[in-house]
Amino acid sequence: MNRKSVVSFTVFSALLTLILIFSLSWALYDYYRAAPQPIKASDTETAVQTRENEAMTIIALGDSLTRGTGDETGRGYVGIVSEQLKRDSDKQVIIHNIGINGQRSAQLKEQVKKQEIQRQIGMADAVLITIGGNDLFQGGQTLMNIDPKEIEKAQNIYSANIQSIFETVRSINSEAAIYLIGLYNPFIELEDSELTTRAVTEWNQRSAELSSEFPRTIFVPTFDLFQLNVNDYLFSDKFHPNRDGYKMIADRVAALLSRQEGVK
């Protein structure tokens, strides 16, 4: 071991030690003494609002159905739709899945007001929405105690919310097609099925009417898909669709989407 390298190591690491001690005191000073400064817009890069022409951009909003709860492969109808589109089209497909389990229309109304979500909606060619299931069924509570007045009340709130959601989406993006996926009746084979079926059909009717008031807004029914042999298409919680159930919804949505894009 030559003396030179020993000396140079000593000097070099002594220097490093000083730098590190300085950094340490700086960290402490910065943590406790530095004044907060408001973040100026100029400090940050601005979001680009360009729509990518080569790609098809889809944003999926809503509740557990958008999330794909109940699908053992975890894809949900959004995942299956995106796979089908990717397979059938040479376009690139970009999917933003913003669904949150248990979300109700009031929460979605707030969600679409968020900056980043709005940016994504602005870039989208299509907006997929599943919402209302939690408003109507309230986690099964409605079923226990079917009270037409309560349902009526929930429906009015829902209508106002969905109106506001449509308005917000339309104000950001006037071109994208909006697909509102309707509700099915998961309780159709249980007792009181006439009551629940009536509630769901009325609910869907209201959704369809609201959709028709907005341009390029499409109500996609699913009630008929789950009318017969519902248990074959439901997950073990007897509420969410299983993989086959999602497949049926996805087929319908994908057909509409590919028509929109003129694929094939």
Binding site: E52, A55, I95, H96, I100, E116, Q120
Partner: peptide, 23 residues
């Protein structure tokens, strides 16, 4: 995600966390 936009992937992370919080 089909995109390398960090905003989209950060948004996705937030949504994923929100869903985990629901459990």
């Amino acid at each position: 995600l089909g995109t390398s936009d960090w905003r989209a992937s950060l948004q996705q992370q937030i949504i994923d966390t929100q869903n985990r919080l629901g459990s």
